[in-house]
């Protein structure tokens, strides 16, 4: 599918979709409520068939948290970037996609570990790298660690 076709399909499926400028991939910014629905449709519809989630990253833009999903179809060879944002800094949460792409389970654990973004319905949401008793979420921009991080 070409990018224009994908744009059309995605805006058919969910409301409130934006397509921010991105030179490399087609990027879709959409409301977090429809994350699970869109992901499932993208994976299961044979015209889109996005079966390979090759990157899932959390981003802290300062005011907002975002989770970015890089998708590729191994059969149709097209790529898509999904992005969901939230303004909620105290209790950010999104739906999990780990039932759709199994690799997401550990990517989401990593995002939870480092950003404190919760993923609803995640089967095993624990810290991945940091010890269980660690306080704070180190990749957040407002994370302060005066002992170990030297401000330049």
């Amino acid at each position: 599918m070409t990018n224009d076709e994908l744009k059309f399909v995605v805006s058919e499926w969910v409301a409130g979709v934006e397509f921010p400028e991105n030179k490399q991939y087609l990027e879709v910014l959409f409301p977090a409520e429809s994350l699970h629905k869109l992901a499932k449709l993208l994976k299961e519809t044979s015209e889109t068939d996005f079966d390979y989630l090759f990157c899932l990253s959390g981003v802290d833009y300062g005011k907002q948290f975002a989770v970015v999903y890089h998708l590729e179809s191994t059969t149709l060879k097209h790529e898509l970037v999904l992005k969901v944002k939230t303004d909620d800094r105290t209790n950010p949460n999104f739906d999990t996609v780990c039932g759709i792409w199994r690799t997401a389970e550990w990517f989401e654990r990593e995002v939870f570990d480092l950003y404190g973004i919760k993923f609803n319905n995640h089967p095993d949401l624990r810290r991945l790298f940091l010890p269980e008793d660690w306080v704070g979420y180190p990749l957040r921009k407002d994370f302060k660690d005066e002992l170990n991080i030297i401000e330049r």
Partner: peptide
């Protein structure tokens, strides 16, 4: 602002 490495061994 953010660098994410999608490392092969992780998956």
């Amino acid at each position: 602002l953010r660098v994410k490495f999608r490392t092969p061994n992780f998956s």
